[in-house]
Each structure stands twice: as structure tokens, then as C-alpha cells.
Design a protein around this nucleic acid. Structure first.
Lengths: 116, 116
DNA sequence: TCGCCTTATCGTCATTCAACGATATGATGT
DNA sequence: ACATCATATCGTTGAATGACGATAAGGCGA
């Protein structure tokens, strides 16, 4: 029950191998997936958030709000978009929420972009 | 002056080395650039167009319209978006227009996504 | 020159997006 | 139980997007 929670749960420091993605990188399905992911990244604020989460090994939570020149509600909206795209995951950690990158999904994005 | 133009001008079959991009893949500038590129890709039709152009070694023009279930004007709009993002280039080839991928820019996109 | 073919642009409409402040929700510590 | 802090959601507004048909623009061949 330590109060310095945050971390532990999220953002594995030593990344597990995680089974490789066998889904195709071409075809209508893949096109739609790439479009969805790209759209989620298609805003500077969301790119910044992704970088923030990638940079800090541990997943920060609302510190994101402090880093961006946007209202808290706006940041929350952007986080929602990223979450819905599966690029980010939020774990409730006491009174706050700890966000971290979903490495699987990020790899998928890279694979799809790489297939172009 | 052969009439089977299309190709020749566009889409070099043997890709020139092209000087590598020295611009940073991080920072506000890069974030904005990634967001811009991602946004351009953020629609299934545009992903399809990109694939089409990548797949065919030569750059096709209005055949794109035939490949997509969209009105000609809509496809033209999507091409405009891709063109404005620099992902695609259009060369006038007689009465038609030959589109092809801008490899430099596509590489840039890959580099930016890869930096995440 | 005239008409044809190809592509871009215009005008319109419905939808989505981005931003904000205000407010609800939910967990903590007192 | 309460006040508090952190986050999500709501409601609104203006701007951007996506789609289409109609129309303009530009080059070619007859």
C-alpha cells in the first residue's frame, strides 16, 4: 500500500518479448487499421503525449496536463482518443490515473507504416 | 513523344540514393511534422491510394478513381490532401496527371514514426 | 476550331474535431 | 462524513472534414 504507487503496474521496465503480430500488413483490414492509428496520431498534442509516455520509462499520469499548454479537459479528450486507438492504456492508481504506451499497438503502427 | 507516356517522368524505377534526411526526429518541429503526415494518412481511402502508388512501380493517374468506390471529385480531394502533405507528387502528362509517391517524404514519415 | 476526355475546383450539406469552462465522479486522508 | 484532489464527462461553439454533383479548365485529336 505504499503511497508512491505509480509505476509498478504499468510500463514494464524490462519489456517482455510479446508474441509477434501475425496479422497482415496489407489489405482492406490493414488499411483501415493504419488509417485509424494515423488519425489518432494526427494532432500535435497527441504526438507530444505519445513522446512523453515513451520517453519516461514509467508512465506518468496527469503530469501530462502540466506539460501541455492545454486545458485539463482538452488533454483528457486527447488521451481518450489515444486510448480508443489502443495506443495508450490508463490504469487507475489510487486517486490518479497512470497512462502508459501500449507497446504492442505501437509496434503494429510501425509495422503498418513500414509496409508502405 | 510516344503516346504511352505515363511513367518515364515519374517514379524512378531505380531509386536514386537521395541524400539522407538530417533533420531531427524529435522536438516540436518534428512533432508537428509527424502530426501533419499522420493526419494525411488518417483516412482509409488515402491509405489505399498510397498503397496503390507504392505497389505500381509506375505512377498511375486517374486509374485511382477506378480503384476506389468514390466519386472522382472525392478522390481528387484526397489526392490534394496527400499532395499538400508532400507524400505524393502529380506531374502533368498530356491531358492526364501522373501521381507518384514522394519517396523522400515517405521515408521521413517512417523515420518519425520509428522514433516513437 | 470544335468537341472530348481528364482532372481540378466550387458549392453544399452533414458530420466530426478541437477547444474551453463547468460540472460530475471517485478515491484519499482527516 | 467531509473536504480535497485528480480525472472524466457534458454542453457549447467555431472550424475543419468528407462526400457528392455540377461545373470549370486544359490538352488532344479530328
Amino acid at each position: 500500500m505504499s503511497n508512491r504507487s505509480r509505476k509498478d503496474s504499468c510500463a514494464p521496465v524490462t519489456v517482455a518479448p510479446e508474441a509477434p503480430d501475425h496479422r497482415p500488413v496489407e489489405g482492406d483490414e490493414a488499411d483501415a487499421e493504419l488509417a485509424e492509428l494515423a488519425k489518432a496520431l494526427g494532432h500535435p498534442a497527441r504526438v507530444q503525449i505519445m513522446r512523453l509516455l515513451v520517453r519516461r520509462e514509467a508512465c506518468i499520469c496527469g503530469d501530462i496536463v502540466d506539460e501541455l499548454p492545454l486545458a485539463q479537459s482538452t488533454v483528457s479528450q486527447h488521451l481518450k482518443v489515444l486510448k480508443e486507438a489502443g495506443l495508450v492504456k490508463g490504469e487507475i492508481d489510487g486517486p490518479r490515473v497512470c497512462y502508459c504506451v501500449e507497446p504492442r499497438r505501437l509496434r503494429r503502427l510501425k509495422a503498418l507504416v513500414g509496409s508502405l
